[in-house]
Structures are given as structure tokens and as C-alpha cells.
């Protein structure tokens, strides 16, 4: 059985006359890492919130279709079950600090207190989450004093400690500097390595290509396609949906450097490999750079 399934998901925010999500269906296996791309206003955040069960619960509004988590309908789960099943990380790390705690350690424990995890286990889980995300050394710091990258990893640790099977990240690095981005992406890779199903909304296509097993392209609330990065980014019509391919893919397209499957490379490593191969076979076009 698929781990996460969306079936004819439709949603309209209260007071709006356009659908934020328009008949979206897909299914995702356990442990997959799914990228969500599309221009601003295409429905990325709405989809993230629907997957985390905040739509329709938190927002109200018109809702149709369903999201199934492990075969159970998200909209019918109580708050308690839902937050053990799926975690959500937002764009702005600052708004995820509860403000009720004076240290990063207590901050990470916040969710565990709410769902009544026994004290011994709570300490074990908080420590594990903070060590995994390399923020254990900041455990005594005042949460608001952390850097953006540290704060965002603290937010992820707080979600991870709840032991969800699914973590949805809505543009988690867009407010961070290069170092912070790197830290958070490493953290996401770690989560993925723990068998957690990941949804990642992001504008940086190079990162999406490097991280995701499959990518969902949204446009005006519709799911245009959901495919592997290579297949998706090899499409000719990306610009019409307001997104662009990774620079590597753009370069390979102009030079018509394709892999054996006929698709363009999407990551640095792959592009390098294909370019090197082409050079060895003396394919001509790349020799100018020697």
C-alpha cells in the first residue's frame, strides 16, 4: 500500500474564488523524497498544509477529495494521531519558535510534553534529535539567539523528536544564508536516511534535482506532472509553468549532451560524468575548452 495518497484533492481558501488545489491525485511510497516545485501562488504551500492535515482543519474553506496517510484519511484524524504521523516545517524559522521555552533543549521537547511522552523517553528523544541535527552543543542557548540555520534545525529537531513517518518541509531554506542552507539540506538528507517520507517545496532546482526521488510540478493549483527529476527537467515546456531547469540541464540541453536514457543530466556529478564520457569518445562539441 502506498504511504501517502492524494485522491482528487481540491481546496479553496475561505473568501477566495479560485481553487488553490485543483483535483490533485498521486501516491508516494514509504521513504521516498518528493520535491514540490512551481511558481509562487501555484499551490505549493497549500499542498504542504493539506499533507500535514492543516487543510481543511486549520483553515476551513471548501475541501474535496482526500489525503490518505497509511490508508487513513488525514482529515478524520485527531490532532494527537496526526502530529505523530506527519510533521511540518515552515519557511520562517523564527515563527516556529514557541516562545514558551528558555533553552533550545526545552524547545525541542515542547511537542513531546504536549503528547505526554514519559520524561525518561523524552530526554532520550530530544538528545537523539539534537545530536542527529548537530545542534546538541547549542542545547543551553536561548532559542531566539540561534542563527537562522541553527533555529531551523531546532525546528526540524522538534518535529523529528515526535517520530513522524512523514515530514513536509515548505521552503525550509529560503530565509537562510548559504551556510544555513547547507546545514539544513544535510539535515534533510539525514531524515531521508532514516526512512522518513519527505516532501520538500523549494525554488532552487539544483537542490531539488540533487535531493529528490521524484518531483511534483504544480501550476495554478493543478498537478502538471510528477516524475523523476531527469524526466521532469528534460521537458521542453517548463518555462510555460514558470519554472526553469537546473543550470546543468540547461547547459546540457544546448549542447545536446544526453544520457543513455535520452534524458539530460540534472546534477553536477551526472553532468560531469556525461561531459567526461563525451570528451573521451571525441564527440567534438566539448573540445573547445581544452
Amino acid at each position: 500500500m502506498a504511504h501517502v495518497t492524494a485522491l482528487h484533492l481540491k481546496y479553496k481558501y475561505p473568501g477566495s474564488d479560485t481553487l488553490a488545489l485543483h483535483d490533485i491525485s498521486f501516491s508516494v511510497e514509504r521513504g521516498e523524497c518528493i520535491g514540490i516545485i512551481g511558481e509562487n501562488g501555484s499551490g505549493k504551500s497549500s499542498l504542504c498544509q493539506a499533507l500535514a492535515g492543516l487543510i481543511p482543519g486549520f483553515y476551513k474553506g471548501a475541501y474535496g477529495g482526500k489525503v490518505l496517510l497509511d490508508g487513513q484519511e488525514a482529515a478524520h484524524m485527531d490532532a494527537d494521531t496526526l502530529c505523530r504521523k506527519v510533521g511540518l516545517v515552515f519557511q520562517n524559522p523564527f515563527n516556529q519558535v514557541t516562545g514558551a521555552k528558555l533553552t533550545a533543549y526545552e524547545e525541542v521537547a515542547f511537542g513531546l510534553e504536549n503528547i505526554g511522552v514519559p520524561r525518561e523517553e523524552m530526554h532520550a528523544r530530544v538528545r537523539e534529535a539534537m545530536e542527529l541535527l548537530h545542534i546538541y552543543e547549542y542545547r543551553e542557548h536561548y532559542p531566539f539567539d540561534l542563527s537562522g540555520g541553527q533555529m531551523q534545525r531546532m525546528a526540524i529537531a522538534g518535529v523529528f523528536a515526535m517520530r513522524p513517518e512523514i515530514i513536509v518541509l515548505d521552503e525550509p531554506v529560503s530565509q537562510l544564508d548559504p551556510q544555513g542552507r547547507k546545514e539544513v539540506f544535510e539535515a534533510i538528507r539525514t531524515l531521508s536516511g532514516h526512512g522518513i517520507t519527505i516532501f520538500l517545496a523549494e525554488h532552487n532546482m539544483e537542490q531539488i534535482a540533487a535531493f529528490c526521488d521524484r518531483v511534483a510540478l504544480l501550476h495554478e493549483g493543478r498537478l502538471i506532472c510528477m516524475d523523476t527529476p531527469a524526466r521532469l527537467f528534460s521537458r521542453d515546456d517548463l518555462e510555460t509553468y514558470g519554472v526553469e531547469a537546473p543550470v546543468f540541464t540547461k547547459l546540457a540541453r544546448v549542447l545536446q549532451v544526453r544520457g543513455q536514457d535520452g534524458l539530460f543530466p540534472v546534477t553536477l556529478e551526472e553532468t560531469k560524468r556525461l561531459f567526461m564520457e563525451k570528451r573521451q569518445t571525441g564527440a567534438g562539441v566539448l573540445e573547445w575548452l581544452e
Partner: peptide, 25 residues
């Protein structure tokens, strides 16, 4: 900010009906 923070609290079980536990004895 308040709306985002409210959502962040929600996903961390703030509205859970479980009996709360406490980190500090």
C-alpha cells in the same frame, strides 16, 4: 507571524487531548 506560529504549535501537538507530561521534574 501569529498564524504561522499557531500552525507550528498545532503540528507539535499543542491541541492534543493527551495528558501532558513535563520535561523538568
Amino acid at each position: 507571524n501569529t498564524r504561522e506560529r499557531a500552525m507550528a504549535l498545532e503540528v507539535r501537538g499543542f491541541n492534543s487531548r493527551c495528558k501532558k507530561s513535563f520535561l523538568n521534574p
